[in-house]
Design a binder for these strands. Structure first.
Lengths: 149, 149
DNA sequence: TATTGTTATACTCTATAACTATA
DNA sequence: TATAGTTATAGAGTATAACAATA
């Protein structure tokens, strides 16, 4: 007998991510941010910043792309860049008080967005979903491009 | 006791979708396509084309954005547009033989991509994952932006 | 007036290549 | 030479606003 006709999981994943991503974009925009800025802020707050290269990897973008965003964030007064006295090639990126404020606002928006998405799900289901997504991502990254962390 | 610390499901979803989406982009590009072109081709092949507005909704983009893609596809010889004699405001979009060929190539790439992602998953798990994703998308679209179909 | 679609324009995110500064 | 980062440039995808054609 023929295999059951299931909508390609890639299509379902892409569609859900698009819908959820747009909703998240709007939530972040309403709070004065965007997804790349949010990812950069999270990385700066939650891990030791070695250098911009690592930051770019954590966010999943190229170094030049990170520079582009940091330029905007610096102009907006969210971060400052200064050279590391110990190795003047390295630019130390630090959050300003305004950057901290924005982080908190975006964190609130992100939490609200997450709660909205979790509605109707048990903790077990969310854990299962996260496990599925992790496994699926691993399938696609074998020896290939790394996942942002 | 404190709730277990779970990575926000929105972050996991966005990260997985980004990784999977990039892998899919590469697969489609290798076959001579892109995600928007693939979505447009699917819609043209699998449903009756009422008009471009509906096509844009199905793909989840604005009408002007669709025009942008159709211009490229027409230049590439994938589709033709002609006015509907019954209602000359409507432009009927039809696939050329070349468009059909590209559809087949992209379908192969999409199937291969799907098989890659499903590796290690049982059919039951895939069905469960699809169900989770559908429910999550519904949570985010209540009375808001519609999901592409 | 309402509907269908196009044109004009611009923005965001991303990337590669060439470059500067430092080691 | 190698490493860290920036600048210059470009391309893909998307959007809004104004417009033309048709009803």
């Amino acid at each position: 007998m023929p295999a059951p006709v299931t909508a390609p999981i890639g299509v379902v994943l892409a569609r859900t991510a698009k819908t959820a991503g747009r909703a998240f974009d709007q939530a972040l925009a309403a709070a004065g941010g965007s997804q790349p800025v949010w990812q950069i802020l999270i990385s700066l707050k939650t891990r030791p910043v070695a250098n911009q290269r690592e930051l770019a990897d954590a966010v999943g973008i190229q170094g030049a792309t990170l520079t582009h965003h940091l330029n905007g964030m610096e102009t907006a007064g969210l971060v400052t860049r200064r050279r590391d006295p110990a190795n003047r090639r390295v630019h130390l990126v630090t959050l300003t008080p305004q950057g901290d404020e924005l982080f908190l606002r975006l964190a609130s928006a992100a939490i609200a967005h997450d709660e909205r998405m979790r509605k109707g799900f048990t903790d077990t289901e969310i854990a299962q979903l996260a496990d599925f997504l992790h496994r699926m991502a691993a399938n696609v990254t074998e020896d290939g491009a790394e996942q942002p962390s």
